[in-house]
């Protein structure tokens, strides 16, 4: 079954030369957890025509420091207003954290393949997020809720290391109340004040309320978490070509020229980052590929 995702019909602002960043202004910098923060940005020019599909990423440039690929985690309907949630893991992201409202940064994008929201029409949708993996999935959740009637059951399973590492907690609570959406969360380790589930997110899959014969699954998180999540989903009978994950690799260009993001025969920047499991299975989990 062909599952190679077409690039969506999105327009990137002024990409006559896709290596030129467009200036964006910081509206807000929000600390999410002790090592994760969200940038909220708007383009300097009107940015009309910029749109993105859930799962795509931008290349974010901090003046004079460097550029990194980060998934877009805002509502596609709010574009060109963008949000990017990221961990502070290196020079560029640490410098990014020091930016203030009113500062400018460079954006190139959107790049990459997207979550199969269209394909999920008429089906159950299972979203399994681990840690910061919820950030690239959030735009898909927005799209699903914007047209809730198109989908059958929607289940979100979210696991983090500890309760304090959960992202978007208030938003999750609101969604739980407002929409017909099943949300289950768990943590790997908890202090005694936590009264919820403890255990890895994969343990919630066997009993989650969805029909595996008619489900699209979207999985994002650390690679180990995705591998075991997929194993549980397949065990329950979800089709490998309807199970999607988001991969991650070093990127220097985002447009298939620098060669850094190669993963077996695939370029994560243009064949991914969202892949159907059936396509990525031959390389997933192979050491040093």
């Amino acid at each position: 079954m062909a599952t190679i995702l077409e690039q969506p019909e999105v327009v990137s602002a002024g990409l006559a030369d896709p290596m030129l960043p467009m200036p964006y202004r910081i509206q807000r910098v929000k600390q999410e957890t002790d090592d994760t923060f969200t940038l909220e940005i708007l383009p300097e020019d009107s940015g009309k025509g910029f749109s993105f599909a859930p799962g795509q990423f931008n290349m974010l440039y901090v003046f004079g420091v460097g550029e990194v690929p980060i998934s877009i985690s805002s509502d596609p309907d709010d574009a060109p207003f963008l949000k990017h949630t990221t961990r502070m893991v290196g020079t560029v992201t640490k410098a990014m954290r020091q930016l203030k409202r009113g500062d400018t940064m460079g954006i190139r994008g959107p790049f990459g393949s997207h979550w199969p929201v269209q394909e999920a029409t008429g089906r159950d949708v299972v979203i399994v997020a681990g840690g910061i993996g919820l950030a690239p999935l959030r735009p898909a959740l927005y799209r699903l809720m914007a047209e809730r009637e198109k989908y059958r059951k929607i289940v979100l399973l979210y696991g983090t290391r500890a309760p304090e590492d959960m992202l978007y907690r208030q938003e999750l609570e609101q969604w739980r109340g407002k929409f017909d959406l099943e949300i289950q969360v768990t943590v790997d380790r908890a202090a005694s004040s936590w009264r919820g589930n403890v255990g890895v997110v994969t343990t919630m899959i066997p009993r989650a309320p969805f029909d595996p014969t008619n489900t699209v699954a979207m999985v994002c998180g650390p690679e180990v978490m995705m591998r075991f999540t997929v194993m549980e989903l397949l065990k329950r009978g979800v089709a490998p070509e309807r199970t999607y994950l988001s991969a991650e690799r070093n990127m220097k260009c985002g447009i298939g020229f620098c060669g850094h993001c190669q993963y077996g025969p695939m370029f994560v920047c243009k064949d991914g980052p969202v892949f159907a499991y059936s396509r990525i299975a031959p390389v997933l989990g192979r050491s040093e590929v």
Partner: peptide, 9 residues
């Protein structure tokens, strides 16, 4: 054809 980028000030 692989390349990398360097940002300098």
């Amino acid at each position: 054809f692989c390349t990398t980028v360097e940002d300098v000030t």
